[in-house]
């Protein structure tokens, strides 16, 4: 008998060590994509910079919630405090960033760090601010919107763009819309031709439960103003592509800079043209 595999991976995942006196970039990662997606970003950073991912997949009460109906027995601030404890004591400059819901957690982390340990700014990678105007009740999340995001996610997982016409999804429920996503994913080579619809449904339900988990964690959370400048990187085809600042201005007491970036919400973490935008921003933050 060999021991069973690990149920949860480690939270702290160093992808590259900083050189002597070099900067360490910490990115808070909420899962959905495997943490390995940051390999390219680690390589794209300037020589001497390090990259460490703080991976929520390693926090059982958070990660398991996507598999158990989307209810996590924790809070945004408790998660953030747990992550802040993983920041190494000062060994040189550091950058704090968070992708997607990871940006909400990274922002919460800055509220629990002493002023002397704050980085120069906080980099938010296509994160939606946890403010009332951007909070949605669960049933306000339209299937057509979720199916479109799911297609984007599938494409990023398989490195194949899954093109589903938003007009074709508009007004459809999950049962009618999911077969369109399946057809598009098979046509793009992102899924095997004989992928059964009930199998894809399980993947979709788990994806949506992950979103609902984040939505429900955000609902009771009352964020305060950020104690440092914010830099928001918006993907060209992000979660809310038409929105200018994703709600962060009301939390940006020390200023907000918005930078565009190629790619969609998921591919922005791996496309070389997106990394060419992200790497210098993270180095300078």
């Amino acid at each position: 008998m060999r021991p069973p595999r690990e149920l949860t991976p480690p939270v702290v995942r160093p992808f590259r060590q900083a050189g002597p006196g070099g900067r360490t970039v910490y990115v808070v990662h909420p899962g959905a994509l495997a943490a390995q997606v940051y390999r390219g970003l680690a390589d794209a950073l300037p020589e001497g910079d390090g990259l460490t991912v703080l991976d929520l997949s390693g926090v059982a009460e958070y990660a398991q919630a996507a598999l158990n109906g989307g209810r996590a027995a924790t809070t945004v601030q408790d998660l953030a405090d747990g992550l802040a404890a993983h920041l190494e004591p000062e060994q040189g400059p550091y950058t704090l960033a968070g992708w997607s819901f990871g940006g909400v957690l990274a922002h919460a982390m800055t509220r629990s760090l002493p002023a002397g340990r704050l980085p120069g700014s906080l980099v938010l990678l296509d994160s939606i601010a946890p403010v009332d105007a951007y909070k949605q009740p669960d049933d306000a999340l339209e299937p057509a919107l979720l199916l479109g995001w799911f297609a984007m996610y599938l494409g990023a997982k398989r490195d194949r763009a899954v093109g589903v016409d938003p007009a074709a999804l508009a007004g459809r429920g999950t049962d009618e819309g999911l077969p369109l996503v399946l057809d598009a994913a098979v046509a793009a080579g992102a899924l095997a031709a004989d992928t059964p619809l009930p199998g894809l449904r399980k993947l979709y339900d788990t994806y949506v439960d992950g979103l609902l988990r984040n939505n429900r964690l955000t609902a009771p959370y009352r964020p305060g103003p950020a104690p440092l400048p914010l830099v928001l990187v918006k993907a060209e085809r992000g979660l809310l592509p038409e929105d200018a600042s994703l709600g962060w201005e009301s939390l940006a007491a020390r200023g907000l800079t918005v930078r565009p970036c190629p790619g969609d919400h998921y591919t922005m973490l791996a496309r070389p043209d997106a990394l060419a935008v992200l790497a210098p921003l993270l180095h300078a933050a």
């Binding site: 495997a34 599938l154 997982k157 899924l191 199998g199 399980k202 993947l203």
Partner: peptide, 24 residues
């Protein structure tokens, strides 16, 4: 199997069995 394939297989199996399997 990556996590995508594992979930697709689990969904197919649950559909065949007619009941859900716990994540553990």
């Amino acid at each position: 199997l990556d996590s995508t394939e594992a979930l697709i297989l689990a969904g197919e199996m649950e559909n065949w069995l007619g009941f859900e399997l716990s994540t553990t």
